[in-house]
């Protein structure tokens, strides 16, 4: 089990009468990139929210590094090193890029007296380095709220990296990003995975992106797990094709 970082077993979740997830089971392998696809409304984001603790689940179990997390609140899960980005980007709009990065320092590794220090030179250097990594170095002194949507998305990604997570859940990282920049982003995501050793679990609508990145892909439809496999297997799976074409 040691190489499985997130273990989702038979998770169900309904909102009122709507069954958003039904008996979903999937595993995310340590150190890899795992994809999650599915048509709109198939319950992908609900599953993400269940994993990171935004709402209680109706049944099943979710384990992170072998420990049950389905009853923990958001910040405790985040403090174990399981982080997420939001589909509708969330950054601190009133602060500039550097400040956003500094806030994202991993507080779980800080004792209270560390928190009472001012930021160190290394903190600033790391922030600069990561802003450069996502290509926002030039814009680092600007108020983040003034950045374009795509840039905010990159900033949020950089903030997540600043937090040094073990595992990062990305909710549609390429949505809203200028198509000419997407290749660069794929490259950065892959580098985050290899260079920083962060396990990635990615929801993605852009098939080209996910097929290029992920080693394993899970496909949800109507809240249920439809298929799983390598990109090749998924691409040729008739059920997945049907689901996307809306054939039922």
């Amino acid at each position: 089990m040691s190489d499985i970082i997130i273990n989702v077993q038979n998770v169900s979740k309904s909102f009122g009468g709507v069954q958003a997830n039904t008996n979903v089971t999937m595993q995310v392998e340590t150190g890899g990139i795992t994809g999650l696809i599915g048509p709109n409304g198939s319950g992908k984001t609900t599953l993400f929210n269940s994993i990171v603790g935004y709402h209680p689940i109706d049944g099943g179990s979710i384990q992170f590094e072998g420990q049950e997390i389905s009853k923990l609140p958001v910040q405790q899960i985040a403090r174990r090193g399981l982080l997420r980005t939001f589909q509708q980007t969330r950054i601190y709009g009133a602060m500039n890029g550097i400040e956003n990065m500094l806030i994202s320092l991993p507080h779980r590794k800080m004792k209270i007296w560390d928190a009472l220090k001012t930021y160190t030179r290394e903190d600033y250097e790391r922030a600069d380095h990561l802003l450069e990594f996502v290509g926002l170095y030039e814009k680092r002194m600007l108020k983040s709220g003034d950045l374009s949507f795509g840039q905010q998305k990159l900033l949020e990604f950089a903030m997540a990296l600043m937090n040094e997570p073990t595992c990062l859940l990305l909710d549609e990282p390429t949505a809203g990003i200028n198509p000419t920049l997407i290749n660069g982003l794929i490259d950065r995501l892959k580098r985050a995975n290899t260079e920083f050793g962060i396990t990635l679990f990615v929801i993605e609508h852009n098939m080209r992106v996910i097929m290029n990145m992920a080693e394993t892909i899970y496909c949800l439809a109507h809240g249920e797990l439809l298929a799983q496999g390598t990109p090749d297997e998924i691409q040729n799976d008739q059920r997945v094709i049907d689901a996307y074409l809306g054939a039922h």
Binding site: F86, M95, L102, M110, L116
Partner: peptide, 22 residues
């Protein structure tokens, strides 16, 4: 201090601060 920045983060978006593990 970092403490000051953290409470500013709570003011601006507490849910995000939670999600960052603060």
């Amino acid at each position: 201090t970092r403490f000051g920045a953290a409470i500013n983060a709570i003011r601006d978006d507490e849910e995000k601060a939670d999600a960052m593990g603060i």
